[in-house]
Design a protein around this nucleic acid. Structure first.
Lengths: 236, 236
DNA sequence: GGGTGGTTGTCATAGAGGTGTCATGTAAGC
DNA sequence: GCTTACATGACACCTCTATGACAACCACCC
């Protein structure tokens, strides 16, 4: 497990209104987070590539792109697909659109909010997503997932995985010995509020198993009938 | 088998102000949840024992006990320790709120809130906590049931169980040394209001015994003629 | 622009696997 | 010995999962 202090975590605030940005910065820094700022999508992209923040706090309304679109973009890129996102919305925007669309954010917070609420939600999301930061290297019995290079290998042989299978495996390896329902997996691998059939998980499980099978590692991906799946190096 | 869809989940609303209770009930029922209500801690206790809700929505300020205290109480009792709790707080109470997520509740929501925010948070929490229910690990004399991985092992050997047998064993292990009638077992293992022959319990008892027999643990499942069954590590 | 190779989500279908009920065998209590 | 209650094996039904195929989509290159 990584360091338990979530202080010193880097948070990127993407918000075009300076007063709100300041308020957020003040609240977070008082709680000992490191804060970076971006006013628009473009500078956010740079900041992400540059700083590799641990969490992104993003306004729903950005000049140019909509928040939803931007989150989708982030999720597509393997560099940023693992970074949790908290969406900031105004109360008036807070209806169907925000949560009906395919946004893959991890939580959201409604303006106006108090600084303690902000900090609490940031902490909660970090707590949920922390283990398996992203750059970490995970290894189980010769199956190695290198977060920095985004590569998976079995012994000396490389394992070819699609982006989704990679994220799925990373999720499993950072949360082993534990059953997850298809719904939970959609939340944590695909992103929250994404409208995807639950059965789609089965298909990606199969693809992951297929890629691991030549090395015998498909035995790690275990089906728990009626509940979901589990990653475990021990026998089923 | 019971359907696992999130609709039809039972939610207990613990709130002393009738208007807010009504608003919550309206919002949740429109989203096809079943709602039960309680005005204070005492009637909440009864409702929990009686209805076994899937989620509790609790006001921070209750007459008598504080919400925090009540959550702590719920977490201590094995009957309720696995039920997720969303705390409802007023904006003025926000100082306490930060502690909210450390208190043992799963999320919180600030008054005034919109019904869509309420429903979204309820759904999110249910999604996170769905499978398996209890995550705690139970062990008796080398027979181990691990809630997180939904796995049962006898010493080092895994024990293969179907879903129903797993739930049955978990029920037994968390309520040992006590006789339960077939009807009680149907209620607590199959779910209330399920139309199943009482004799079916016998069959699942047999299946459980069969799975445990290779390790000698079938002796824990004891028949009490005329009454039902009992789980006990002591001789029958 | 139009391929091209790769990835993704959905569906249809096949196939395990689990479930509830019954018929029959066996033990317990009187 | 008789009655009643439980144990057990078999079985038809049904739910859940595995798998292959496919069309839509994307990034990239010619």
């Amino acid at each position: 497990m990584t360091k338990l202090t979530m202080q010193h975590k880097h948070i990127l605030v993407v918000e075009d209104e300076a007063p709100i940005r300041d308020m957020i910065r003040f609240a977070l820094e008082r709680s000992e987070f490191h804060v970076h700022e971006a006013e628009d999508a473009q500078s956010a992209r740079l900041a992400i590539a540059d700083q590799r923040p641990d969490l992104i706090l993003m306004d729903w309304m950005l000049p140019g792109v909509s928040g939803a679109e931007f989150v989708r973009e982030l999720r597509r890129d393997s560099l940023s697909s693992a970074i949790p996102v908290i969406m900031v919305t105004a109360r008036v925007e807070e209806d169907d659109r925000v949560r009906g669309l395919n946004i893959g954010c991890d939580d959201y917070i409604v303006k106006p909010f108090s600084s303690s609420e902000l900090v609490a939600r940031v902490r909660a999301v970090l707590r949920r997503t922390l283990p398996g930061g992203e750059a970490e290297t995970l290894e189980v019995d010769g199956l190695r997932l290198d977060g920095a290079s985004q590569r998976v290998s079995a012994g000396d042989d490389p394992v070819r995985l699609g982006p989704t299978e990679y994220r799925l495996l990373r999720f499993f390896m950072s949360n082993p010995e534990r059953v997850y329902s298809r719904e939970q997996m959609l939340d944590r691998v695909w992103g929250q509020n994404v409208f995807v059939e639950e059965r789609t998980v089965d298909v990606h499980i199969r693809r992951l198993r297929k890629a691991l099978a030549p090395f015998g590692f498909d035995r790690f991906i275990q089906t728990v009938r009626g509940s979901g799946y589990r990653f475990s190096s021990r026998a089923g």
